[in-house]
Write a protein that binds this DNA or RNA. Sequence first.
DNA 1: ATTGGACATATCCGTATTGACATGTCCAAT
DNA 2: ATTGGACATGTCAATACGGATATGTCCAAT
Lengths: 177, 177
Amino acid sequence: MALRYALLGLLAERPASGYELAKEFEGDLGHYAWQAGHNRIYPELARLAGEGLIESAEEGARGRRVHTITAAGLAELRAWLLEPWEGGAVRNEGVLRLFLLSALDSADARKILHAIAARCERELERIRDAVSGETPISGEGRLALGWLAAGYGLRQYEASRDWAVWALGELDKADRR
Amino acid sequence: MALRYALLGLLAERPASGYELAKEFEGDLGHYAWQAGHNRIYPELARLAGEGLIESAEEGARGRRVHTITAAGLAELRAWLLEPWEGGAVRNEGVLRLFLLSALDSADARKILHAIAARCERELERIRDAVSGETPISGEGRLALGWLAAGYGLRQYEASRDWAVWALGELDKADRR
DNA sequence: ATTGGACATATCCGTATTGACATGTCCAAT
DNA sequence: ATTGGACATGTCAATACGGATATGTCCAAT
C-alpha cells in the first residue's frame, strides 16, 4: 500500500519517468522511509494509471514515459495523509543490528558502537554537504520532499550517534560491576 | 534474512516460546526495528531448529515449546553482527508520511505537523514511564535488548519532535514569501 | 567509427510477508 | 458450571518483494 503513495507523493512534486522515480528511492527516501526498485515501480505505475490516479504519456526518446499525477491521485494521496493511522510497516535492518548488540560480549559491542558513532559522523557530514546545494521550496511554494528528508536525516543521525555514545557509557557502568 | 537474526538475538537473552517471541515484536523491537507475526515466526523457528541454531523442547502445558539458542546459533548471530554491511532493508510508513507532507498545502501540513509533535511527546512520556521499570542489564552482565531499544526510542522521538518543530518553522518561512 | 555509460523499460522466479482461518488449553471470575 | 481472555500453535492463499536477466537507445569522448 505504501509504495503507491510514495509514487503519488513524488509525482505531486513534478512529473517523472519510472527511471527517475527509481533514482529517487536511492536517495534519502530509500534511506529512511521506503525502498523500491524499478521492478516494483513499473508495475505499480501501470496500476496507478489503470485507476486513473496518474496519467502516462509516451514522450519520444528512448521509450521514455512521463507520469503525471491527476486530480484524483492528488485527492487520494491527501486523504491517505490526513487519515488517522498508527502502526504501519516498520523494517530497518540497521536498527535491528543496534538492538542485537545485546547478544555480544562487551569487547565486541564496544567495537561496533565505535564504528556506528563514526559512521553517523560521516553521514552527517555527507548530508550537510548535500543540503548546501538544495532548495527548501519546490513548485507552488510547498516544502520540497528532499528538504524535509534531509532535515530528518540530520536529526536522525545525530540521535543515533548520541545513542551509541550513551550505550558505550552504559557498557562502562555494566562492566564496573 | 533479518528475521532469523532477530529471533536468535531474542533467544540469546533467554529461552522462549514462539508465543513469547511474537509478543516481543509488539514492543520496541517491532516499533523501531523489525516486525513479525506468529505466522512468520513459527516456520522460521522450525527452520532454525532444522539448521541446529536453536533447540526446541516440548514443555508440558498447552503444547508450549521452549526454544533455546545453541552454540552454533550464537556463533552465527555474532558473525552476522560483526560482518561489515551497509544498506539493508528499510521500510517505515511513518517516516514516509512525514516526507509526503511535501504534497500538502500549508494548512494541511501544519495540522499534521502539530499532531506529530504531540504524538512524539506522548510516546516520550510512555517510554519514560516504561523505562523506570526496566533493568539495564540482562543475564551474564550484558546490556538488555529492551534497555537499548528504550534508549533508542527516547532519542528517536526527540529527534522526530524536533524535526516537526523545525518543519513548522520552514513552513513559516515559505509562507512569508 | 566505436565504445562506455547513463537512460529507459520489462519480465521471471523464488522467497517473504500478511491477513484470514483454524484449533485447542488453561485459568480466574462470575 | 460457564464463560471470556490470555496462552499456544498452526495452515493457506494472495500479494509484495528482490535479484537476476533481458533488451534497446542516446550521447559524449576517444
